[in-house]
């Protein structure tokens, strides 16, 4: 097969980034492998029109976001419930293990992380994408604007609005939990 070796290298260099972005944006480990393959196949098909005006990573993020949008459309058509990241083989728990922390704190932190993941999936697609690209992928406003094709001001608005929604939802949940604990103590 006549494939430029640099494409293989490109896949190797960016596969981790594509996998983790897909995971956070779809909120599920299901079909992650297939979606990642789709991202790279689309990149391969689009490369002849790639003119070097943007970085390959910007191009790749754009394709990843498009693949996730298609996946969400497909899920909506199939009317399938969301499967949480933590339902499958969860790596969150392993990552949260910390020898310096006691078990209760680790559990609390794990639960908080799961709540954050759940709330993230309740945001609009655009807010979720902006939050993931900014916080997880550490992209700048300019890069996110280039990926999503929107003005920088709009990116900022989505970021603040998304974080505000999540903070309010998490606080509301914590308040409810506290109330429930108080009632059971009585």
């Amino acid at each position: 097969m006549h494939v430029d070796l640099s494409f293989e290298q490109l896949v190797r260099d960016h596969q981790a980034m594509v996998f983790r972005t897909l995971l956070r944006l779809t909120g599920s480990r299901e079909h992650l492998d297939d979606l990642a393959q789709e991202v790279f196949l689309r990149l391969y098909r689009a490369l002849p029109s790639f003119r070097g005006e943007a970085l390959v990573t910007t191009y790749l993020y754009r394709i990843t976001v498009n693949v996730v949008q298609d996946e969400w459309k497909r899920r909506r058509r199939d009317d399938r419930p969301l499967i949480s990241i933590s339902d499958d083989v969860s790596a969150w728990e392993e990552r949260l293990e910390h020898p310096g922390r006691n078990a209760e704190e680790q559990i609390a932190e794990r639960e908080f992380q799961m709540d954050v993941e759940e709330q993230l999936q309740r945001l609009s697609q655009i807010e979720r994408t902006v939050l993931v690209l900014y916080h997880q992928e550490e992209r700048s406003y300019e890069q996110i604007a280039a990926v999503l094709g929107m003005p920088i001001g709009t990116v900022r608005t989505h970021l603040h609005r998304g974080r505000k929604k999540m903070r309010e939802a998490l606080q509301e949940r914590q308040t409810k939990e506290r109330r429930a604990v108080c009632e059971t103590k009585r």
Binding site: F7, F19, A91, W92, Q113
Partner: peptide, 30 residues
């Protein structure tokens, strides 16, 4: 929590599988 990067398991043969699915007729230049 948002900055916590999720750990992902990438299949060892992922690159090989992607390359196997590429259309053969068009060589790619980066």
């Amino acid at each position: 929590a948002l900055e916590t990067v999720p750990a992902v398991t990438i299949p060892a043969d992922f690159v090989a599988r992607v390359v196997a699915r590429l259309p053969a007729e068009r060589p790619v230049s980066l």
